[in-house]
Nucleic acid binder design. Structure first.
Length: 722
DNA sequence: TCAATCCGTATC
DNA sequence: ATACGGATTGAC
C-alpha cells in the first residue's frame, strides 16, 4: 500500500484527519494515540487453551521448533490447530501454522500475542504436521521447508467459495460444506460408497479387476477392504493395465470406508490414472492434485481433500502430503523414476514420504511398477512389505519374446541401409517381420549423460577400487580420478573382465535412430521425446522412435520393440545405471504384445550384462535383489545411509567439524565440485541413519546460529550423484 | 560511578 | 532481521 500522507498534496483530504485544523504538534499527538490504540486492541486472552504452539516459517535451521504465542480473545474461535497465522518473530512479521492449542506454555518469559489469524481453515492436518516433521528429520531439513512442499499457497477467494471443488461431475456428496469434523483417525465407520459398494459385494472377480492374476492380489485387496494395513511391492505383469489396477485398489479402499492416495511420476501417468479412476470409481470420487493446475485450482482441490469432500487423490510427488481423510492406502507407481525425487530442500523422495506415512498412519502401501528398485527389494528383504507378483508361468505367457543381438561386426545386417545404422541382422529381421502386423517401438537413450569412464573391453562402468565411486576424467588432468573420494585411478583393473584400459563413452544415438527410417522405406517414422511427446499411436505399422519415458501408448500393443545403444545407457556415471536402464526397457517392453501374439523385443548389447539378462527373463525382482546385494558390498543406499554435502569448501568443512557424527561414519572426500565448490560424502550403516541426519541438522543449526558464511547443502540418500 | 557502545545470543 | 542483556570502555 502506498497511501502515506507524504504522497498527497495537503493532508486535509485524508479522511483520517477529519476536520482538524493543521496545527502541527497537536495533530501528530492525536495520530500517535490513534495508532497506539489501534495497534493494541483488547489483549485479553482466550477463555480456554490460551496458548498457540506455532510452527514459524523461518529459513533458520536453529529455530526449527514450535514457538508459543498467546491467543487474544477475539481470535479464540478462528485460531484452530492447523490454521495459518501471522506472528511477530524476531522483530519481523512471519507466517506460521498453529500446531496446537494448549493451556500452558513451558516458555519462561513473556509470550507475544498472535498478530493475526490469516484464516480459520485448518490447512495443516495433524497427521500431515507429524509426517512433515518426520520427513524433515529423515532428510536433515527443517519443518518449514517441508511444509512449503506439503501445503499449497493460500488463495483467499477460493476459500470463500461455497462449493470447494470442481471434482468431475460432482455427485451429491454432502461433505461439500466445511462443517465436517476433522480427521477421525479411525478407519472405521464410514458408509461404503455408491455403486462401488454394491459392486464390491458381488462376485470376487469383478471387483478384483486385474488383481486376480497375481498370487497375493486378492488377499491384498481383502486386507485393504477390511481396514488393515497391507504393504506390498507389486510387480506389474507385462502389458498390465496398471492405471486400472491402481484404481481398483483405491476403489476397494474406499469401499472399506477409507481414503486412498496414489502418486505417479509425471503428468501422462496422472492423466491415465485419472481416466481409470473416473471409470472404476465413478464420477466425482477422486481428485487430481498436481503443481501445474495453477494456484487457485490447486488450492481449491486441496481444500476439497482437506475438508473431506473427496477421499481419493491421485497426483505427482507433492501429492504425497495430501491430507486425505482416514487414509487407508498409499500407492506409488514406478518408484524408480527420478521425477519422484523432490528437487527442493530437503529433497525428499515421494516413495519415502509415502512409506513414512504408511508407517505412521498404519495404512496400506502399494509400491508398484514393471521394474523394481533396490529400495523396494529392501522392503521385501526386511519383511516390511510382501511381494504381489504373477506366477512364473503367467509372466511367461504375457511377456514378449526377448532376444539379444550383439553389436559385433559379424552380426551386423548385410542390408546396406541397416548397416549404416549398425543394426544387427536379427534386429532388422524382427522389425521387418513385425512391421507387417503393427507398430514397432525403437527406444534410444537420451542424450546428455555425465561422462563416466567405461572398461575398454567389456564397457562396464569404471568404479573406484577404494570406494566404488564413478571414475571420471575431470578437466584436463591426465589420470582419471574417482568422483567421490578423489583418488586417482592408477593401476585400475576392471572387476568384470580384468581389463586394464578405460574409454570415454561416445554420445550420439539420436542420429542413428533417425537413420532407421532409411532402412525401412515406405514405413512411416514417428518420433517422441524431449519437448515433443506423442501420446499414442494406432495399430497400423509404423516405426516409433522414442526416448525412455516418452513411448506413445499403442492402441493394440507394439508388434515389437528394439533397444538401441544399450551400452551407452549402462555406462552412465550414476550408480543406479543398471537399475535405471532395466526400468526403461521394462517400461517400453511392457507395451509390446505378449509372445503368444508374436510380440518380440530385441535388445542390442552384451548378453551377459545383468540388466539384459533380467529383461530377457523378465525378472525385475531378482535383478533388484542382486542390485541390493551389490550395493551392500559397495556400501550404497539403501543398504547404508548416505549424506552428500556440497558447497563452499570452508562451509562444508565447518559443517563437518561441527557434526557429531556416529562412530561408524565414514567420510569420503572432499573433492572439488562445480565452480570452486567441494563435495563430501558421509556414509553410515542404516541403523545409524537417524543419528547421521540429526548430527548434520544440528551442525546446520549451529552454522545458522552463528551466521556462518557460505552455503553447504545436505542431501540424504540422493537419487543420483557422481 | 554512570552512560554510551559493543558483542553475542535469542528470537515465544 | 532485530532486540535485548551483559560486558566493556571512556568520561567525569
Amino acid at each position: 500500500m502506498t497511501t502515506d500522507d507524504g504522497g498527497r498534496p495537503g493532508g486535509e483530504s485524508n479522511p483520517d484527519d477529519g476536520d482538524q485544523p493543521d496545527d502541527g504538534g497537536q495533530l501528530a499527538l492525536v495520530r500517535a494515540r490513534v495508532r497506539r490504540t489501534r495497534a493494541r486492541p483488547s489483549q485479553a486472552p482466550a477463555p480456554s487453551l490460551p496458548i498457540a504452539r506455532v510452527a514459524v516459517d523461518t529459513p533458520l535451521a536453529h529455530l526449527d521448533r514450535p514457538f508459543d504465542y498467546t491467543v487474544p480473545e477475539r481470535m479464540h474461535e478462528t485460531c484452530v490447530p492447523g490454521c495459518r497465522v501471522r506472528v511477530r518473530f524476531a522483530g519481523q512479521d512471519l507466517d506460521g501454522y498453529v500446531l496446537d492449542r494448549v493451556a500452558e506454555s513451558a516458555h519462561r518469559g513473556r509470550l507475544a500475542p498472535l498478530r493475526r489469524v490469516v484464516s480459520a481453515e485448518p490447512v495443516l492436518a495433524p497427521e500431515v504436521a507429524r509426517l512433515a516433521r518426520s520427513v524433515a528429520d529423515r532428510y536433515a531439513g527443517t519443518l518449514a521447508d517441508v511444509l512449503r512442499l506439503a501445503v499449497p499457497p493460500r488463495h483467499a477467494r477460493v476459500e470463500g467459495e461455497s462449493r470447494p471443488a470442481h471434482v468431475g461431475d460432482e455427485t451429491d456428496r454432502s461433505g461439500a460444506d466445511r462443517s465436517e469434523p476433522a480427521a477421525g483417525d479411525e478407519p472405521a465407520d464410514r458408509p461404503a460408497q455408491h455403486e462401488l459398494a454394491g459392486d464390491a459385494d458381488h462376485g470376487a472377480t469383478r471387483c478384483e479387476g486385474p488383481w486376480g492374476s497375481y498370487e497375493a492380489g486378492p488377499a491384498y485387496l481383502q486386507a485393504l477392504r477390511r481396514g488393515d494395513a497391507p504393504r506390498a511391492v507389486w510387480s506389474a505383469l507385462p502389458g498390465e493395465d496398471w492405471p486400472r489396477a491402481l484404481a481398483t485398489a483405491a476403489a476397494v479402499t474406499l469401499a472399506g470406508g477409507r481414503g486412498a492416495l496414489i502418486v505417479v511420476p509425471d503428468h501422462r501417468d496422472v492423466a491415465r490414472l485419472d481416466a481409470a479412476c473416473a471409470e472404476v470409481l465413478g464420477a466425482g470420487q477422486h481428485v487430481v492434485l498436481t503443481a501445474e493446475l495453477g494456484p487457485a485450482e490447486r488450492y481449491r482441490r486441496f481444500l476439497a481433500v482437506r475438508r473431506g469432500s473427496v477421499r481419493c487423490v491421485v497426483g505427482t510427488r507433492a501429492a504425497a502430503f495430501a491430507p486425505v481423510e482416514a487414509l487407508g492406502l498409499v500407492g506409488c507407481w514406478d518408484d524408480g523414476d527420478d521425477l519422484l525425487a523432490e528437487p527442493r530442500a530437503p529433497y525428499p523422495h515421494a516413495r519415502e514420504v509415502l512409506l513414512l506415512r504408511a508407517h505412521e498412519q498404519r495404512c496400506g502401501a502399494l509400491i508398484g511398477g514393471y521394474a523394481c528398485t533396490a529400495e523396494a527389494a529392501q522392503l521385501l528383504a526386511t519383511g516390511w512389505a510382501h511381494p504381489v507378483a504373477g506366477s512364473r508361468s503367467t509372466v511367461r505367457a504375457r511377456a514378449p519374446r526377448v532376444s539379444v543381438a550383439g553389436e559385433s561386426a559379424a552380426e551386423l545386417a548385410r542390408d546396406p541401409a541397416a548397416r549404416a545404422v549398425r543394426l544387427p541382422h536379427r534386429a532388422f529381421e524382427v522389425a521387418r517381420q513385425a512391421l507387417t502386423t503393427g507398430p514397432v517401438l525403437v527406444q534410444v537413450p537420451r542424450s546428455g549423460y555425465l561422462p563416466a569412464l567405461a572398461c575398454q573391453n567389456c564397457r562396464a562402468a569404471a568404479r573406484c577400487t577404494a570406494c566404488a565411486g564413478p571414475v571420471q576424467q575431470s578437466g584436463g588432468r591426465e589420470v582419471p580420478a574417482c568422483g567421490w573420494c578423489g583418488r586417482p585411478a592408477v593401476a585400475w583393473r576392471c572387476p568384470t573382465c580384468e581389463g586394464t584400459r578405460m574409454r570415454a563413452p561416445v554420445i550420439g544415438a539420436r542420429r542413428t535412430a533417425e537413420e532407421l527410417g532409411r532402412a525401412f522405406p515406405r514405413v512411416p517414422v514417428r518420433t517422441s521425446g524431449g519437448q515433443r511427446v506423442l501420446e499414442s499411436v494406432g495399430a497400423e505399422p509404423a516405426l516409433v522412435v522414442a526416448t525412455p519415458g516418452a513411448e506413445p501408448l499403442p492402441a493394440e500393443g507394439y508388434a515389437a520393440a528394439l533397444m538401441l545403444d544399450t551400452w551407452l545407457a549402462l555406462a552412465r556415471a550414476d550408480l543406479r545405471a543398471g537399475e535405471e536402464t532395466l526400468r526403461r526397457w521394462l517400461n517400453a517392453a511392457a507395451l509390446v504384445r505378449g509372445a503368444d501374439q508374436g510380440g518380440a523385443v530385441v535388445v542390442m548389447g552384451e548378453p551377459s550384462v545383468p540388466s539384459i539378462q533380467a529383461l530377457v527373463r523378465w525378472s525385475p525382482v531378482a535383478h533388484a535383489e542382486r542390485e541390493l546385494a551389490d550395493r551392500r558390498i559397495a556400501g550404497f543406499p539403501p543398504t547404508v545411509r548416505l549424506a552428500v554435502i556440497e558447497g563452499d569448501g570452508a562451509a562444508v568443512s565447518e559443517l563437518t567439524e561441527f557434526a557429531e557424527l556416529p562412530e561408524t561414519a565414514e567420510v569420503l572426500g572432499p573433492v572439488p565440485h562445480g565452480e570452486d565448490g567441494v563435495r563430501l560424502v558421509i556414509r553410515t550403516p542404516r541403523r545409524d541413519g537417524v543419528q547421521l541426519a540429526e548430527a548434520l541438522k544440528t551442525a546446520q543449526a549451529s552454522r545458522s546460529a552463528r551466521k556462518s558464511a557460505g552455503t553447504a547443502r545436505v542431501q540424504i540418500d540422493p537419487i543420483a550423484f557422481g
